[in-house]
Computed example of a mutant assay.
Amino acid sequence: MPKPRNPISPHSRYREAQKLTVLPLDHGLPVPEVPNGREWSEHERAYWIELWETPQASQWDDATAGIVATLVVHWSEILAGTATSTQLMEYRHLTKALGLTPEGMRALGWVMGDE
């Protein structure tokens, strides 16, 4: 006997349309200071600012700063060619969790707004 359909399952094609959060292209929120505890290079600071100016950052709060900082550190290691496979995997997971990938945006129910 086939398994009965579950319309509330997140993977069901029978569920009602999910409410989407429309992200503003220019949110105008201030960029937080990079966390203390290490020396940040200029390219890391530039990436930090770039991340906090994304439409996705409009949905982040100050508690997200540590997660974003970890993402920046992994990104820097990847570019330097010194990242471990664990750092590569963690970078991939963090970008998805922060909604920085199409898959992550879809999972969070986010869409880009119009200009």
Rank of each mutant, 00 (worst) to 15 (best):
H27T: 09
L51G: 07
D26L: 09
T70Q: 10
H27M: 12
R15I: 07
K96E: 13
A17G: 05
E50L: 14
R92D: 11
T82G: 11
Q18F: 12
T82Y: 08
H74Q: 08
V34P: 15
K96M: 08
P10S: 04
R15Y: 04
A69H: 10
Y47Q: 12
Q87W: 01
R92L: 09
L25R: 10
A57K: 10
H11M: 05
W48A: 01
W110N: 00
A63V: 14
Q87D: 06
E50V: 12
S58G: 06
R45Y: 01
E42G: 08
A46P: 00
A69T: 05
P35V: 00
L20W: 03
L51W: 04
K3P: 03
P7V: 14
Q18L: 11
L71W: 15
H93Q: 15
A97Y: 04
R38A: 01
E39S: 12
A97F: 07
L20M: 04
L29V: 11
E77Y: 12
P30D: 08
E103A: 15
D26A: 12
W110T: 00
T54M: 08
W110R: 01
N36A: 10
E16Y: 12
T82D: 14
D62A: 07
S76V: 03
L71A: 09
G28V: 04
A57S: 14
S85Q: 14
E33V: 07
E33R: 02
R92M: 10
P24C: 01
I49T: 13
R92W: 12
S9I: 12
Q18R: 15
R5I: 15
I67C: 07
K19L: 04
M105H: 01
T95Y: 01
G109E: 03
R15S: 05
M89S: 09
G109C: 03
E16V: 15
T95F: 01
H93A: 15
V31A: 03
V72Y: 11
G99P: 12
A80Q: 13
I49Q: 08
W110S: 00
P7A: 15
T84E: 05
H74E: 14
G99L: 07
N6W: 06
Q56K: 12
L29P: 09
Q56D: 10
L79D: 09
H11F: 09
G109M: 01
E90L: 15
K3D: 08
N6D: 14
W110K: 00
E33H: 02
G113E: 02
V22W: 02
T82I: 13
M112K: 13
P35E: 00
R45S: 07
E90V: 14
K3G: 04
K3F: 06
D62L: 13
S58E: 11
A83E: 02
T86A: 15
D114C: 04
A107Y: 05
L98E: 01
P2V: 09
G28L: 04
I78Y: 00
W52G: 06
T64N: 05
E33D: 13
L20V: 07
E39L: 13
Y14D: 10
A83N: 01
T54G: 05
R38M: 05
P10V: 11
G109V: 00
T21H: 07
G99D: 03
V22R: 04
S12C: 09
L100F: 09
P30G: 07
V22S: 04
A69E: 04
I78Q: 00
L94Q: 09
S12M: 05
Y47A: 11
L88G: 06
E103C: 10
